[in-house]
Amino acid sequence: MSVKVLLHQEVHVSYHQIYVESSEATIEGDVNGAFLGQVNGLCGAGIPGTLLMFTGTHTGRIGFTVELHRDRPTLPGVWEDAVEVSFTTDSDGLELVECCGDRYPLDLPDGDYRVRYSARGMTEGHQGGVPQEGQPPWDHYLLQFWPAPPAPDRVTRMTTEHAEYWHKSARAR
């Protein structure tokens, strides 16, 4: 197994947000805590066992894929913005959680991971408004996990002003 797809579908976001949480760790609206001490502003890993991710779309559907890799995957050029954070899970019930919405189970074994959160179409999502019925989402996201020891977060690719805005916001916290 070089890659296992844990989720691949459209999900709903509100307030530009979507989360990864476990039954024992939640964001509970703590945006500042999620990004405390980080240089990236797209994927907050400051609250142990959780991730808070920002999107271009304020409210509506986005494309979202979650993958588990054996080793660090390459970053294809199709992704306009990407960041990496460390993540540790040691509890049951890990889920991708829509802000004020549904929850999707993620079959991720316990352990230490490096996580890459990649985005494309953030600008279009921010400017496009709510996608109409039958219209594809404006923006798409890829969340990749692979085993790795903890390390500082980093911005691996930044090409959009929208991502730059979120990075500056995180550094000001």
Rank of each mutant, 00 (worst) to 15 (best):
T50D: 02
M122L: 06
V5Q: 10
R154Y: 11
S91W: 10
E95I: 01
S23F: 06
R154F: 11
H69P: 03
P76T: 12
V3N: 08
L51I: 13
E164P: 02
E124K: 07
G111I: 14
T160K: 01
H58K: 00
P105T: 01
M122K: 01
L51A: 13
Q144I: 09
T65W: 08
G33P: 02
Y113S: 11
V20R: 04
H140G: 08
F64M: 11
H12K: 07
F64R: 09
V85I: 14
P137C: 08
R116T: 15
E164G: 07
D107H: 01
H58T: 00
W166Y: 13
E10H: 03
V3Y: 05
E124D: 14
V13W: 00
E80F: 05
E84C: 15
F35M: 04
P137F: 02
G56K: 01
T74R: 09
I62W: 01
P48V: 04
P137G: 09
P76W: 15
E28H: 05
T88I: 12
E161H: 02
H126N: 02
I27K: 06
L108Y: 14
P136E: 06
Y19M: 11
V66Q: 06
K4P: 00
Q132I: 14
P147M: 08
G60R: 11
H16S: 03
Y165D: 03
G60V: 07
G29I: 05
T123L: 10
E164R: 07
G129P: 07
H126T: 00
D107M: 01
D110L: 13
Q17S: 06
L7Q: 06
F54P: 05
E24F: 04
H69Y: 04
I47M: 05
K168Y: 10
P149G: 14
